[in-house]
């Protein structure tokens, strides 16, 4: 028994690429030898889009004989019903707190997104589940702090302690940006990330998980979604007087990227001795230079503070020059503290 695990496609009217990714997944199920496609929530971006896109999605699903197993996520919580026709091969696991389903000897349970605590949903779970599908935020301290600023992480907290021994493979959905693999006891817990690059947080090649259950063994591997563009993001630090050098560094970095699917997001932060206008002009020139090379290209300079007038002051300039060679985090902090104080004195 082999299946493809994905989640968070966020299909939306007008976002044809996302629909294409779904089509690609369905069309390639046979190539992967998969008997089923598991969608762990948020197939649609919202319930309205679900109503609009359902006929088209049904048509896509009809292109395969494999089972398509869907649970609702927080974005498409009300997009499923036994009255809705997604195709005969589609299994909607929508009963709360959970719904069981058996496929080729694999015992699976779907926990649709619901506004209650995860532990309340799992208390009556049957034993010896092979596959558990759920949509929520895994509060694992090894990675959750990277995402905790996102309000989306408020939805359905799931604690690692609750997952150990719950099933052999737990197919999660909700975190889009990248795939995350964890193992608690003998239980594998996996976020595949969104197969489409939904936003600039979706960094790295997009992928889905190919999971194989064979005679008590479980194998899994990532499968790249070849048609999906993906974001490459990089943070650059700017120090006063190093504007030209920074532009050169960025140029060198961009020249090194060969994959045409790449969408580039550069986040520049720091302090500039040039005026906003000058810096903007440099950045615009860079964008013009590389625009055709990438499917999307963004440079964010919002976190750059321009202190051009302050840095005309000979004392301040002298101070800035004397910080050269200091480790850049410390140097950033020095500027963060001193430049506003210098500036206040000049007001």
């Amino acid at each position: 028994m082999r299946l493809i695990h994905t989640a968070d496609l966020h299909l939306k009217k007008g976002e044809k690429n996302r629909l294409e990714v779904l089509r690609w997944l369905i069309n390639n199920l046979e190539r992967f030898g998969a008997d089923a496609l598991i969608i762990a929530g948020d197939l649609f971006d919202n319930d309205t889009d679900a109503n609009i896109l359902r006929p088209e999605v049904r048509k896509i699903f009809q292109n395969t004989d494999a089972k398509v197993i869907i649970i609702p996520g927080n974005h498409d919580q009300h997009s499923y019903s036994y009255d809705y026709d997604y195709g005969e091969n589609v299994v909607q696991l929508i009963k709360t707190p959970f719904e069981s389903y058996q496929l080729a000897g694999i015992k699976m349970v779907g926990i649709p997104y619901q506004e209650k605590r995860f532990i309340e949903c799992i208390k009556d779970l049957p034993e010896e589940i092979d596959l558990l599908v759920a949509h929520g935020t895994l509060y694992d301290k090894t990675f959750i702090f990277n995402y905790i600023d996102d309000e989306e992480t408020r939805y359905m907290p799931v604690y690692p302690e609750s997952l150990s021994g719950l099933a052999r493979y737990i197919a999660l959905g909700h975190i889009h940006s990248r795939c995350i693999e964890k193992k608690y006891g003998d239980t594998f817990v996996v976020y595949p990330g969104s197969p489409s690059a939904l936003d600039i947080k979706c960094v790295g090649k997009r992928c889905v998980y190919l999971v194989e259950f064979r005679d008590g063994d479980l194998k899994m591997e990532t499968v790249e979604v070849e048609i999906s563009p993906y974001w490459v993001t990089r943070e650059f630090f700017l120090f006063p007087g190093a504007e030209a050098k920074l532009i050169d560094e960025i140029r060198e970095f961009l020249s090194g990227i060969k994959d045409k699917r790449v969408m580039v997001h550069l986040d520049i932060r720091g302090f500039s001795e040039e005026s906003d206008r000058n810096l903007k002009s440099r950045v615009e020139q860079l964008i013009r230079e590389f625009k055709g090379k990438f499917s999307d290209f963004r440079i964010d300079t919002d976190k750059v503070q321009s202190w051009s007038q302050l840095l005309e002051n000979r004392i301040v300039r002298n101070f800035v020059q004397k910080t050269e060679g200091i480790e850049f985090n410390l140097r950033m902090k020095i500027f963060e503290i001193t430049l506003p104080i210098f500036n206040k004195l000049l007001e």
């Binding site: 995860f118 532990i119 509060y139 604690y159 690692p160 302690e161 609750s162």
Partner: peptide, 9 residues
């Protein structure tokens, strides 16, 4: 909290 959640289960 995780342990308590587990305990609750």
């Amino acid at each position: 909290i995780g342990k308590i959640e587990d305990k609750e289960v």
